[in-house]
């Protein structure tokens, strides 16, 4: 599905291939590439996965692989409930209440 010109997108690119990485790294990092993610306005219409150019907010033209259309922020306050945090405040207040009486 074609994504139109001037759409706000996120691109991906490989900055350094594994074999190009610097010497002093742990094994697990050495075997993976150094990757980049960057957002900008799409210069020409394209599809996800295409090699494209974007214009960033500072006006730089950067090339990469089209990763996401209209990216949103997905980080929040966590998807897993943490019951432990509930008890801390309650316990501390109880400790101080003894004095406030």
């Amino acid at each position: 599905m074609k994504i139109g010109k001037e759409t706000w997108v996120e691109i991906h690119d490989i900055v350094l291939k594994p074999e190009e990485r610097t010497g002093n790294l742990p094994e697990e990092t050495k075997k993976v590439p150094l990757e980049m993610r960057l957002k900008g306005f799409l210069l020409e219409e394209a599809e996800l996965g295409d090699r494209v150019k974007i214009r960033t907010v500072t006006g730089r033209i950067v090339e990469g692989t089209l990763l996401k259309e209209n990216p949103v922020y997905e980080h929040g306050y966590g998807e897993t409930f943490i019951p432990e945090l509930l008890t801390i405040g309650q316990n501390l207040r109880a400790m101080l209440e003894v004095d406030h009486e």
Partner: peptide, 25 residues
């Protein structure tokens, strides 16, 4: 998550943010 929030915050303030994967490079 903390760094994703930094990315968001910088973008909200009008900066261009280049997000890399781990590495001193």
């Amino acid at each position: 998550p903390e760094i994703l929030e930094k990315r968001r915050k910088c973008e909200a303030l009008g900066a261009e943010v280049i997000s890399l994967t781990v590495g001193p490079e």
